[in-house]
Nucleic acid binder design. Structure first.
Length: 483
RNA sequence: GGCCCUAUCGUCUAACGGUUAGGACAUCGCCUUCUCAAGGCGGUAAUCAGAGUUCGAUUCUCUGUAGGGUCACCA
């Protein structure tokens, strides 16, 4: 049966279904991004569903935090827990009636039975299998006459036919699994909540989901899903299995345990939402071509599940920084102010600082580092330094002093109206070129104005500080050299 | 251990049997005003191994190797 053909004329419906067990990391957001993009591109529907059936691992506030993360990069949903929709509710713990209804159907059809063992007993079976280096299969311990299910015991799916499965995946092509992958898995836990294996299938059915974007760890459990679809005689959605995202070492799959960050950290560090989309999109997808920087709209236009990768990719923060910088460069100068000033103290919120700061950062939190390192203090107060800092290489204080005086004379007769960096550069370079080494002039001027070993060039410094301040600081330098 | 998935520069990737194996990040060098940044130009650097199919394999097949996933009352 070709599911692609059957679904071809249907409205595309995708979903992102996180469990509220903490923050979202880059992997989860990437899954959401692809599902969202596919729906948007096809004028379909994107659903946000919360899979909160594990009440033990649930972390309070996660749902809000997850929604905040998605909203930040502009992933919006058409149906979800906060806005409702035709198939509300969108929180699994509020959908128990649905699961119970389908559980009854399975029981009636002989596809489900009560599990009479305690957790400890099952644990023993499992340990034994592990010790013998065999895969653990509950069905090998299936009770002969299971009791009537009273809702207090787990309800298990009953595998009637032990077989291998083969199926088609929109990105991986043909996949298969051996019969070992098929087991009597739990449908409803003893606490009354369904397992993921069961709940997501019922929800996807009831919500009409056509494409399931999922991580590749679900390949192994696909036979469970397929056997459920068969038992319920319902059609399955198209599987779109995404490649794993590896950690920085390029080996282990990225996960919370090995340092995957809360996605909101990227907001706090001053990354741009569109840069995150751009970067995330390229972990596991590539449109061909040599263009690397895309706006959100360009990405939506190009995105296609046909170009999703099958092999895993690493997460390279250096490249993210580069992508972010490229996006910062695309911000209109007028709009840049609100991004930059947010990170600057009052006294440094000067328009002329913006270009200097922007070309030195890859993310906005770098501005804070510059401020903390006092790299910008010279903009609003006279630098502190010792006179030896003004001496360039093998010159002496007399030469430097004479050069500074020469500069001072020229600046003093310059009209205020000509005080821009191009004109200043012409003036200074003329003097600098007349010396043995241009550094004899440029270095002391730059240092007198900034007091820093590393700073913007002297011409832009003079322009920003203005004529009076420049003269004042040059005089300070000259008097330091005279001591 | 069983089952399953994967394999191109250090990293992310392009290539849909025929290319000097292309691009980006990183790195290195040079230029652009003394420094820093930005920018420009250029360099180093890859098809996991072995068989097979083919006139011709990065590409198809098999085996090996390596890495990843899974074998939960987690998703």
């Amino acid at each position: 049966m070709n599911h692609n053909m059957e679904n071809i004329n249907k409205k595309i419906i995708t979903r992102f279904a996180p469990s509220p067990t903490g923050f979202l990391h880059i992997g989860g957001v990437r899954t959401a991004l692809y599902a969202w993009a596919w729906a948007r591109k096809n004028n379909g529907t994107f659903i946000l569903r919360i899979e909160d059936t594990d009440k033990v691992r649930e972390v309070e506030g996660s749902i809000e935090h997850i929604m905040e993360s998605l909203k930040w990069i502009g992933i919006n949903w058409d149906e979800g827990p906060d806005i409702g929709g035709p198939n509300a509710p969108y929180i699994q713990s509020e959908r128990l009636d649905s699961y119970n209804r389908y559980a009854k159907i399975l029981i009636d059809k002989g596809f489900a039975y009560a599990d009479p063992y305690t957790e400890d007993e099952v644990e023993l079976f499992r340990n034994k299998a592990e010790a013998e280096k065999r895969p653990f299969l509950y069905r090998n311990h299936r009770p002969e006459n299971p009791p009537i299910w009273d809702g207090k015991m787990p309800l298990r799916f009953k595998v009637k036919e032990i077989k291998s499965y083969e199926w088609e995946d929109a990105v991986r092509g043909n996949l298969k699994a051996g019969p070992e992958a098929l087991d009597d898995f739990i449908l409803i836990k003893s606490d009354g909540y369904p397992t993921y294996n069961f709940a997501h299938i019922i929800d996807d059915l009831e919500m009409g989901v056509t494409h399931v974007m999922r991580a590749d760890e679900f390949i192994s459990s696909t036979p469970k899903f397929l056997s459920l679809y068969e038992a319920l005689e319902i059609e399955r959605p198209i599987y779109v299995t995404l490649p794993p995202i590896m950690g920085a070492d390029g080996k282990k799959k990225l996960g919370k345990r090995d340092g995957a960050k809360d996605f909101m950290e990227y907001k706090k560090e001053g990354y741009l939402p569109d840069a995150m989309i751009n970067f995330l999109a390229f972990i596991g997808w590539n449109p061909g071509g040599e263009k690397e920087i895309f706006t959100k709209e360009e990405f939506l236009n190009l995105f296609d599940i046909k170009q999703i990768h099958i092999s895993g990719g690493g997460f390279n923060e250096e490249k993210l920084d580069w992508v972010n910088k490229e996006h910062i460069k695309k911000i209109q100068p007028d709009d840049l102010e609100k991004f930059v000033f947010e990170w600057l103290p009052k006294e440094l919120q000067i328009k002329k600082i913006i270009p200097i700061v922007v070309e030195r950062i890859s993310k906005f939190s770098d501005i804070k580092t510059m401020v903390d390192n006092k790299e910008l203090d010279f903009f609003y107060k006279e630098p502190q330094y010792t006179s030896d800092k003004l001496i360039f290489k093998d010159t002496n204080s007399e030469i430097i002093k004479s050069n500074l005086n020469e500069i001072l004379d020229v600046i003093q007769i310059t009209e205020d109206i000509d005080f821009n960096k191009e004109n200043i550069k012409l003036l200074l370079m003329e003097i600098a070129n007349s010396k043995e080494n241009r550094g004899q002039v440029l270095h002391p001027v730059r240092f007198a104005l900034s007091g820093l070993d590393k700073s913007p060039d002297p011409f832009i410094l003079i322009e920003i500080l203005g004529k009076n301040e420049t003269i004042s600081r040059l005089n300070t330098a000259i008097s330091l050299l005279s001591l």
